[in-house]
């Protein structure tokens, strides 16, 4: 217990003192995951919308596929991407393995099905009259889509936060595709895994605190905006 207390104290000290190595790891984590979520969000929302509002052959199969991909472990996604990006793989010539780009690719693959599945549920739960009202009031399909997105914005934001939470905290794909290289591909979860395996808990605890604070801030923001949407009027 005393050991844990002492490690936590050291962790706080590292965070407050602005430890360069620690903050570099945090920076890499946020840069990679933010890039991944920004790349994934637009195609994911459009896919979710098409799956909810369009009728075409194979639609149900696609929905089942995305729901299945939702539960695939990060390490399996990492393995699949590794096979594609390794020297012998079809994309080996691009020399992307053990780079931040490879980590971004892995995280996009990880969060895309999640954003689609959650976005689809959100659009499915939306009142279909929103789309019809927009169209009957002269909105183009694109404008009507933006209108429906505005109507279900809290569900979409929740999907976005859940997706971001998943990729910033995953260790399997980042470890396999990034290689955990200090100052280049070492992010929060891979650093925690490494430091813990070395018995150096302080840095691991400090990085864990950052993840906890981030989760708290994101969830509080969501609740704040949801509350604002209901109160105003």
């Amino acid at each position: 217990m005393e050991h844990l207390f002492s490690a936590t104290q050291t962790a706080l000290g590292l965070l407050v003192s602005g430890n360069a190595e620690l903050w570099a790891i945090i920076g890499i984590s946020f840069r990679v995951s933010t890039t991944a979520i920004l790349i994934a969000v637009l195609p994911a929302v459009l896919t979710a919308f098409v799956l909810s509002y369009a009728r075409f052959t194979g639609r149900r199969l696609l929905i089942s596929l995305f729901n299945t991909l939702l539960s695939i472990p990060a390490v399996v996604i990492g393995l699949s991407c590794y096979v594609l990006l390794s020297r012998q793989g079809p994309l080996g010539d691009l020399h992307l393995l053990f780079t931040q780009t490879a980590m971004v690719i892995g995280q996009v693959a990880l969060c895309f099905p999640m954003l689609v599945a959650m976005g689809h549920s959100t659009f499915q739960a939306a009142d279909k009259r929103a789309w019809e009202t927009a169209r009957t009031l002269g909105a183009s399909p694109l404008y009507a889509l933006l209108t429906v997105m505005h109507e279900v914005r809290f569900g979409l934001i929740a999907a976005l936060l859940a997706g971001f939470g998943r990729i910033i905290a995953e260790v399997g794909a980042s470890m396999m595709l990034g290689g955990n290289i200090l100052h280049y591909t070492r992010n929060i979860p891979t650093a925690i895994a490494l430091e813990t395996s070395k018995g150096e808990f302080a840095q691991g605890i400090a990085l864990g605190m950052v993840l906890l604070v981030m989760a708290f801030v994101l969830n509080s923001s969501l609740h704040y905006f949801q509350g604002k949407g209901q109160i105003v009027g």
């Binding site: 009259r129 929103a130 019809e132 009202t133 009957t136 009031l137 505005h150 109507e151 949407g229």
Partner: peptide, 12 residues
Amino acid sequence: SVYLHQQPYMFD
């Protein structure tokens, strides 16, 4: 034309 639902939808 404009179509009005039985219970008109109000945007948020």
